[in-house]
Structure formats: C-alpha cells, structure tokens
Simulated assay, not measured.
Amino acid sequence: MTSADLSVLQPYCENDMQLLKKISRSIFLRFNEPLTKADHDDFYSIANMTLWQAYNAYDPDMGISFDGFLRSCLQKKFKSELTHRHRQKRILNQFAVSLDAASDSEESCKLLELIPSDFDTFEEVTKRYENQQYQDKVQLYISRLSNLQVNILNLLINGYRTNEIREILHLSSKELTENLQIMRSFENVKILF
C-alpha cells in the first residue's frame, strides 16, 4: 500500500483502537481459551503489531477486503501464539515432579522428606530446655501420638534412618510415610509453639 492509503487504518486506530480490540475479542471467543487480563493485554499488543504488518503486506489486487485480510492475519498470529504457549507448558510439565513421588534413593522415601527445613519436629522434641512449660508442650505433643508413632519418634531421636526404622518396626514404606506425615502435621506440631 502507499502512504495515501493510510485511511484504511483509520477505523482501527480510532477510540483507543476499539475496533481492533473488538475483532480480537471475537477471535478469542472462537478459541475457547481461558485468558487472563494479562493475556488479553498480550494479545492486544500482538493485534496492534499484526495490524501494521497486515497493512504493509496487503495488496488490494488480492480480491479480499483489508478487513478480511486483517482478520485472517490475526487468527493465524493468535493461533500461533496459543500453540507456542501450550508447547512451553508441555515442556515445563515434563520436568515437573510431585513432592509425593518416591525418590530414586535406596531408602524409597518421598521427595518431600528430603527437602531441608528450618524447623525439624524431632529436633524440637529432643531439645533440653530448662523451662518446664516447654517440656510440658513436648509431653503433650508425644501424648497425641500413637504407640507406633512414639516408637518411630524414639528411633529417629536415636539416629536411625527411615529404611532402618521400616525394618525394625516391620512397616511398609507407605505406612512409615503416612505416620511421619501425621507426626509432622501442623495439627500436631502447633502444640510446640
């Protein structure tokens, strides 16, 4: 197009580009994709850029109106962008691992158990405080545990590893993990604070 044909852009650029936004929204609705406000802003930016690209690429001799040409360009750009975003999500999902998944170590414990934490329930229980009130809290914590959980706690305090505890107490990996989760649950641990 020549510079004299800038009038073809006039309807798209008026009123804060409302016509371009309206066309973009109608295309979004056809894709049935849930889009956030930030996504809409991204796609409006793509639409603005596509408008200028379509203007530069449009040839009136093609036998199609500029409006039709722009719509087809916008549909292609939006579809390409959505495909790119979904591809990125699939790539990221390949590397995602659940914290409840078993680790590759021979102990066959969950990954969540391997993540270091500033707070260690068992360390807190074994600390020796002169304050009788804290000792009472520890006793209350221990009283809420089952006999099996108290046995697990005693073995942990004595430095046994999870695979050794399983063997000593004849527990499956699942049983031990479930008991450890209960012992470390906020409902039980909040007593110590």
Results as ranks from 00 to 15, higher is better:
E33C: 15
L112E: 15
D42W: 00
D5W: 00
Q135L: 12
T162I: 14
M183I: 10
L20M: 03
P60D: 08
F78E: 07
E107D: 12
I152K: 07
K77E: 15
D5S: 11
Q149H: 01
M49T: 13
P116G: 09
L171Q: 05
L192I: 04
K21T: 01
H86T: 09
V138I: 12
H40I: 03
I142D: 03
T126Y: 06
E14H: 01
R144Q: 12
M62T: 09
S105D: 13
K137A: 08
N163F: 15
T2L: 04
N158E: 12
E124V: 13
S65T: 13
N188F: 08
F43E: 05
A54Y: 11
Y141I: 00
K76D: 09
S108A: 13
E175I: 07
A4V: 07
R71S: 03
N93T: 05
V97S: 00
K190Y: 09
Y12T: 03
L35A: 06
T50W: 01
D100H: 05
Q181V: 00
K127Q: 12
N154F: 11
D120Q: 14
S3R: 01
L153K: 06
D104R: 00
Q132K: 14
R71K: 09
D42T: 06
M183K: 04
S45P: 00
R90H: 13
L29P: 00
R128H: 09
D41N: 13
S24Y: 01
A4H: 10
F69M: 04
F28I: 06
E106Q: 13
N32I: 04
R87K: 15
L114K: 11
S146M: 09
D67L: 00
S185K: 06
F95K: 11
L19Y: 06
C73M: 12
Y44S: 03
L74C: 04
I91Q: 11
L176S: 07
E164N: 14
V125C: 10
D16Q: 12
K21Q: 10
I165W: 05
S103G: 08
L156E: 05
Q88T: 06
Q149A: 02
Q135H: 08
L9G: 03
N147D: 10
L9Y: 05
G63W: 04
K110P: 10
S65I: 02
T36E: 06
D59A: 09
D41S: 13
Y160C: 10
V189W: 05
N158R: 12
P11C: 03
S143K: 05
A102F: 10
V125R: 07
L111M: 15
T36M: 04
Q139K: 08
I191Y: 15
L171Y: 07
D61M: 10
L148T: 11
T126D: 09
D100F: 01
